[in-house]
């Protein structure tokens, strides 16, 4: 058992390629709809609610972590998956450059914690929901500093956090689980987890 776990935790070339291609896919899918964020920000700016645009959509950008964890079921998969996805975003978009890597690492580490708490044994809705919660907490702590969230009124901070958690749960748990259910039914991943 011990040996099997140690073996399956090795990263192979095909795992790296799979995660990177998946990240590129997601990067392109998000890139196509990137105007959503700007549109939302524009609509919310007169109300002073611009930060909500970030929190409503953040679940989308943090999907790579839980998806990678689910597909590879390895220690570190969520962190590496999200970090790779952010590297892809930095390279394709080029715009935010290396600072995307910092966010990617923070988000990946957040998702990872959810699976760490289940000792990497559970890959279901429960661990995905837990991962959404840890991602929300970790990224929110980071945004309190980086995006100046700490300067807002307490009610706004609470509302932002709730928005963020809902977004992460909808995209990172609900959507990811819908995708993985399709994958399970296709039995395409069975060989990889064997």
């Amino acid at each position: 058992m011990q040996q099997k776990a140690a073996h399956s935790n090795r990263w192979h070339l095909r795992d790296v390629i799979l995660i990177t291609i998946t990240s590129i896919f997601m990067g392109i899918i998000f890139f196509v709809t990137g105007f959503l964020y700007n549109g939302l920000t524009l609509a919310l700016t007169p109300l002073g609610m611009a930060p909500f645009a970030n929190d409503i959509l953040l679940g989308l950008w943090t999907m790579a972590g839980p998806l990678a964890a689910f597909m590879l079921q390895k220690v570190g998969a969520a962190t590496i998956g999200e970090l790779l996805a952010s590297a892809v975003e930095a390279i394709i978009g080029g715009q935010w450059g290396p600072s995307t890597l910092i966010s990617g690492f923070v988000q990946g580490f957040g998702s990872e914690l959810g699976f760490t708490f289940t000792l990497y044994r559970r890959y279901d809705m429960a661990s995905l929901s837990l991962s959404a919660l840890t991602t929300a907490i970790v990224t929110f702590a980071w945004d309190l500093v980086r995006s100046g969230y700490a300067a807002y009124h307490p009610w706004m901070i609470v509302a932002l956090f709730i928005t963020r958690f809902i977004s992460m749960w909808v995209f990172g748990a609900l959507l990811v689980s819908a995708v993985t259910k399709l994958l399970d039914r296709s039995h395409l991943l069975d060989r990889r987890h064997a």
Partner: peptide, 21 residues
Amino acid sequence: FWSPRLLFKSIVAALNWSENL
């Protein structure tokens, strides 16, 4: 873009490509 099927189909393509590559 939020459709699970689009993501699923992309992942199936990614699985094939990653094996081949």
